[in-house]
């Protein structure tokens, strides 16, 4: 799974917050006023398992127009120094907007059923 350096840093920073607010914390352990002491903690919550279809990106075809980056509701397209690096599947819910807004002539993103990747992933896990 590809993670941008930005996401990695965020995840690291949020380990601290996680220590402060345990999922099973009692009410006495929580900050007063339901304050969340640090921003962006949603990055700890992977919404990628909602996905039934997966965007597959072709680096060769991509013209870096960034329409996928712009119209992705889940901030899943990774851009570094103005170039698309790929999709971060941690949060991708598989809505398919990216494939739809990718210019028709370019067609750098295709949606494939998740089932197509099951064998690959099982093989990868078996190899570990």
């Amino acid at each position: 799974m590809t993670l941008s350096s930005q996401t990695k840093n965020l995840l690291k920073a949020h380990e601290e917050v996680d220590a402060k607010i345990e999922p099973n914390a009692g009410w006495r352990d929580l900050p007063i006023g339901a304050v969340i002491p640090q921003g962006g903690t949603a990055t700890q919550f992977a919404t990628g398992d909602w996905r039934t279809i997966r965007p597959v990106w072709s680096k060769e075809k991509c013209i870096n127009c960034h329409r996928c980056w712009l119209y992705c509701p889940d901030m899943s397209w990774i851009s570094e120094d103005g170039r698309i690096q790929g999709v971060d599947l941690t949060y991708c819910k598989g809505c398919g907007i990216c494939a739809n807004v990718c210019p028709t002539k370019v067609h750098a993103i295709e949606m494939h059923p998740e089932d197509d990747f099951k064998e690959d992933e099982a093989a990868k896990e078996g190899g570990k």
Binding site: G40, T43, Q44, F45, D88, T90, Y91, K93, G96, I97
Partner: peptide, 10 residues
């Protein structure tokens, strides 16, 4: 950030 719980395609 991502990780919010809005519908796919919101």
């Amino acid at each position: 950030t991502g990780g919010h719980r809005a519908c796919a395609g919101c």
